Amino acid sequence: MTDTVAAKARLEEMLAELTARLAHIETDLDEPADADSGERAVQQEDDATLEGQAELVAREIASVTRALERIANGAYGECTKCGAEIAAGRLAARPEAALCIDCAG
């Protein structure tokens, strides 16, 4: 069985970092559009990129949150698909991992 105390601490740290990153992206997206049409076009392209980043960060937040829920439920380290134990090395590399390497592959 994995060290859930250390995993929980690492996941909480990841969640805080991801939440801060998402807040920063949202702040950038909330900036008013430039009056210059050329600059506005560049800002729209940048906003599209930022929206994509926000979506990815939101998915990571959801993944980390689900991992924290698995810790709370006593199911952390078990593959959510087949029920096998997730290898310690995989959890060390990706503490939010929900699938064993066989099911992930």
Rank of each mutant, 00 (worst) to 15 (best):
M1C: 11
D3P: 11
D3M: 02
T4C: 03
V5K: 11
A6I: 02
A6P: 14
A7L: 06
A7V: 05
K8A: 14
A9K: 13
A9L: 10
R10M: 14
L11M: 04
E13Q: 12
E13F: 04
M14D: 12
L15E: 07
L15W: 05
E17K: 07
A20K: 14
A20N: 11
A23H: 04
A23N: 05
H24K: 12
H24F: 05
I25K: 13
D28W: 04
E31H: 11
E31D: 07
D34Q: 12
D34E: 15
S37Q: 14
E39F: 01
E39P: 03
A41Y: 01
A41W: 00
A41K: 02
A41Q: 01
V42G: 10
V42S: 08
V42R: 11
Q44S: 07
Q44K: 05
E45Q: 15
E45N: 11
D46K: 01
D46C: 00
T49K: 13
L50A: 10
L50G: 03
E51N: 09
E51L: 08
E51R: 12
G52A: 04
Q53I: 00
A54M: 10
A54Y: 08
A54N: 08
E55W: 07
L56H: 15
V57H: 08
A58T: 12
A58D: 15
R59N: 08
E60Q: 14
E60R: 15
I61H: 15
I61M: 15
S63I: 00
S63D: 01
S63Y: 00
S63V: 00
V64N: 14
T65A: 11
R66V: 14
A67T: 13
L68F: 01
L68P: 06
L68N: 07
E69M: 10
R70E: 09
I71N: 03
N73R: 05
N73L: 02
A75W: 01
Y76W: 04
Y76G: 04
E78Q: 08
C79T: 15
C79M: 13
C79A: 12
T80M: 05
T80H: 03
K81Y: 08
C82Q: 05
C82G: 03
G83I: 06
A84W: 00
I86N: 09
I86A: 06
A88H: 09
G89M: 00
G89K: 02
G89N: 03
R90W: 01
R90I: 01
L91S: 01
A92G: 13
A93W: 00
R94L: 12
R94C: 05
A97W: 06
A97G: 08
A97R: 10
I101E: 14
C103N: 13
G105F: 00
